[in-house]
Simulated assay, not measured.
Amino acid sequence: MTEERLRVLVVDDHPVYREGLVGVFAEAPALEVVGAAADGPEAVREAERLQPDVVLMDVNLPTLSGIEATRAIVRVSPHMAVLVLTMIEDQDAVFAAMRAGARGYLLKGATPEEIVRATRAVAAGDAVFGSGIAGRVLAYFSAERPGGPAAEAFPTLTAREREVLDLIASGARNQEIARELYVSPKTVRNHISNIFTKLHVADRDEAIALARDAGVGRDVAP
């Protein structure tokens, strides 16, 4: 009996790396690259059009991040497995990808054999982490995480940044946050800019989505 071929969509904004991945899968038995995309919106469109079994997804993409593209793809096609392949190795990015619906997270230092093996594993329904990432995830969950949901979900944020994120996720605007925390609007803007950078999000909507997925948000004082 002929083994069923797994259909793969490759998403990366660097042409040379993207073509290299296509070459990796061309050498792997029972794997077929059915398409490629260079940015987030194209990834979402091609995933819907081609219906691959696995989407190999970078995080840093133009226009729409790989995390948000993953969220959009999984929302419409929950049967589709997304395997993140990126240079970003911090915990926030890993957990954001998992919350968005990714089934695996590898670093770009992974060997071709590791990438192929992980692709097959996520297609089979397994969760896959690269060796360095797996160690960090285990260490995170084995440690006590004081400070509530924001501290647990976003450990790289300062206590003040977590307060600001909490208020953002509750629907507060900058002026309301400034009044609530007794700081200037400029200080609020600086905190929000730092939050966006640390969470690898492009705007307020993405930050809110991540925060609410993590159970962060409370009622704003009138």
Rank of each mutant, 00 (worst) to 15 (best):
T63I: 13
L165W: 05
M1A: 10
P41F: 10
A93T: 15
A47N: 13
I168G: 06
I115F: 04
D203Q: 11
E42H: 10
H79D: 15
V24T: 14
E89V: 05
E206C: 04
G215Y: 02
A150V: 11
A150F: 10
T187N: 10
A143D: 02
R5D: 00
R162W: 11
L64C: 03
P185R: 04
P15A: 11
V44S: 07
G171I: 09
T111K: 12
E89D: 15
A121Y: 09
V74F: 07
G130T: 12
V74A: 13
V116M: 01
R7L: 06
V33Y: 12
G101C: 14
R99H: 13
D90I: 02
A172K: 14
D203H: 14
E114F: 06
P155F: 04
E4G: 00
D219P: 05
G217P: 13
G148W: 04
Q91T: 13
L56R: 01
L106M: 04
R189S: 14
I168R: 07
G20I: 08
E68Y: 09
V201C: 10
G148H: 02
H79T: 15
R160C: 07
I195W: 02
P15W: 01
A153N: 02
T119W: 11
R103G: 14
R145C: 01
P149G: 03
F129S: 07
D213E: 14
A124R: 15
I88F: 03
D203S: 12
G148C: 02
H200V: 04
Q175C: 00
P155M: 01
F25P: 13
E161T: 07
L181H: 09
A30Q: 14
D53C: 02
L85P: 02
V128E: 09
Y105R: 04
I208A: 13
S131Q: 12
E48K: 06
S142T: 10
E46Q: 15
G125S: 01
A178S: 14
E42F: 07
A72T: 03
T2I: 09
T70Y: 05
I168F: 05
A30F: 11
L83V: 02
V8L: 09
R45K: 14
A123M: 07
V8G: 03
R189L: 09
A209S: 12
Y140Q: 08
R160I: 10
V188C: 09
A214Q: 04
D203T: 12
G23M: 05
I133Q: 11
V216G: 05
N174S: 12
Y182A: 12
I177L: 10
V84L: 05
N194A: 15
R45L: 12
F154I: 06
T86S: 03
V33L: 13
N174M: 11
R71K: 12
